[in-house]
Design a protein around this nucleic acid. Structure first.
Lengths: 341, 341
DNA sequence: GAAAATACCGAAATGCCTTTCGGCACGCTA
DNA sequence: TAGCGTGCCGAAAGGCATTTCGGTATTTTC
């Protein structure tokens, strides 16, 4: 049958060389585009390689080159939707077929993380990207990793490490500034789990923007969980205590969905009576709500790309400066803050 | 400084051997638990290895062993939420640190897919899992791949390939049977994009279950898109034409969310007046709706695990039998079909 | 105490590719 | 025609770990 036996050894360079009637060295040079090979010879070698469907063994190559063209991506939680765009961005930056990504999911387990880390080092990855599931600092992998490490989304607790996070403070600020620009003045903030750094940071940005505008938050920041249930409950409370509220900044799109639900139930028009701003720009939620949801997008794909580029730089010998860098976020405007024309 | 220079060569086995005062061969045996080594010698070697923080170069190992302990996962679409659980299942089955997964996202681009495929083969992966984004058949990678290939979620168009898909027909059937078991008799089916095999298969299951019960579908199967918008619109249409409908089987959780919305708007109680069944068990949607959504879970993580096991079997020499296998799905019951006590 | 058996260690080959360096042949110049 | 470049090719080393097989020490057996 056409399918080559799985047991049969793959064709090696020496097979090609023999078929082309040249030495190993010449075959290697011909295939890798080195000079020192006559055009006719090169052609003969390439034809032989094609004929035998030769694929150079990257293992042997890497063994010599001392670098493998692979990067490990160590995540603590694949379920989290934040990991995926970051991963895509990184994959993107590495380019198709140039660098490949080893994906490891530690399931939030330190032991498993250590296992994976060791496996990655054994496989001689050129670098490691560590992706957390929330923006709270996480323990460093340690200072003794022999390859560059970049922490994405969740920064390392060790300031000497390189960490990239979305700018949540700025996100909170942008959300408020947008509501202000649509004429809102009585703005409430419904957030999620107060133990999350993201919740705190966004609240800081919200407050700062209000202060800059000479305004105050309507009521206190309301913390609980990142769910629709909480969004519904909190919105009901806000409206009961402050019926004149005209803008709600939500800590997540889920909360915002809940807010929309309750506003609808209570007969409030969105965005005419109350504008609602979500966070995360989770498309399936933001695009399908009534009305569609204005939201803050953390540019996670960009973050992944940046992480990959930092790895590249470090591989190329650039001395990385440690510390946490906050990357810009962006506002995506939809119908929940500005009426459709 | 403590951090080893990135440029400095990693410690090799011969470093360890020299430090322990033994030969390479002995060091290798000691570390790998082979016999032919005196306990005292073994201890000395292990101490030296620890001291130098020696990590065996997996590349060299693989070069000899002829297998790398890596598997490629080729997806056409990382954004799709179906890929993730499959990936987790596969990762799970491979075990922490035993087998590692190369993740490649082809972005739905054939050229890019070919690039990735070639890269994976160059890296001598032991097997490849191809994950599609919908259950429609996709082109085969071809018969000449020198390693085992399993197609997950999207089956290969070539029946000689090994494909694993969730059993959509059975899913449709289970959904209807569940509604029947709660006493519903007037059941409608709102589905998504009719060009999807998943939509057709689920509809077949729905019809079959109704026929078995001696019933007919209320109205025709309603096809359009997998969105909340469509769920809302279609539900309004159903209620207008068939006000006595008492059960709605939806083709996705998004559609079901839309259905719940409209039912609520029109004053129908769920589940008392109308029961609603979703599909996909997408937790963020199913758990946060009012009431929470009964849904069909495709057991994707299990599917990923199975795919990994098929790869293992093939690596171990089992001759795989081609063809598409439909794996069982399961019903997750929540408040949208059975009232909370 | 001598022969045989055992336990342990090390040199060398192996896997696959890249690169260096020596050398052959040809063409050009003086 | 002798001498010198230049272009092209091939032998061999090297990268790292594993394994086979031959060879010493040491112990056991009669």
């Amino acid at each position: 049958m056409a399918r080559p036996e799985h047991g049969s050894r793959a064709t090696t360079l020496s097979d090609v060389a023999r078929a082309a009637g040249v030495s190993l060295a010449t075959a290697s040079k011909a295939i890798n585009g080195r000079d020192q090979v006559a055009p006719a010879t090169r052609r003969r070698v390439l034809e032989a390689a094609e004929e035998l469907s030769f694929t150079p063994n990257q293992l042997a190559r890497s063994l010599i080159a001392g670098r493998t063209g692979t990067v490990g991506l160590l995540t603590s939680d694949l379920e989290g939707r934040f990991v995926i765009p970051i991963l895509m961005g990184a994959e993107d930056a590495f380019g198709a077929g140039q660098v490949n990504v080893f994906l490891c999911d530690a399931r939030g387990d330190t032991i498993r993380e250590q296992h994976h880390l060791k496996a990655l080092l054994n496989r001689r990855v050129d670098g490691i990207i560590v992706v957390g599931r929330q923006t709270d600092p996480r323990p460093s992998l340690g200072p003794d990793i022999p390859v560059p490490v970049v922490y994405a989304y969740a920064p390392s607790a060790d300031p000497r490490d390189v960490s990239l996070v979305p700018d949540n403070v700025s996100g909170g600020r942008i959300a408020v500034e947008h509501l202000l620009s649509t004429g809102r003045r009585r703005i409430a903030h419904i957030s999620g789990d107060p133990t999350y750094a993201a919740a705190q940071d966004r609240a800081i940005g919200v407050q700062a923007a209000l202060v800059d505008a000479g305004l105050e938050l309507v009521g206190d920041v309301m913390y609980s969980s990142w769910t629709e249930h909480w969004g519904r409950a909190a919105t009901a409370m806000v409206l009961a205590q402050h019926p004149d509220v005209d803008g709600i900044v939500c800590g997540s799109d889920q909360i915002a969905r809940g807010a929309l639900d309750t506003l609808r139930d209570l007969g409030k028009q969105v965005p005419e009576d109350v504008a609602v701003n979500g966070y995360d720009n989770w498309e399936v939620l933001a695009n399908n709500s009534r009305p569609e949801l204005t939201s803050i997008d953390a540019n996670l794909q960009q973050l992944g790309r940046t992480a990959a580029m930092r790895i590249f730089d470090a591989i190329d010998g650039a001395e990385p400066e440690g510390g946490t860098t906050a990357l810009p976020v962006r506002l995506v405007i939809r119908g929940s803050t500005i009426p459709r024309r």
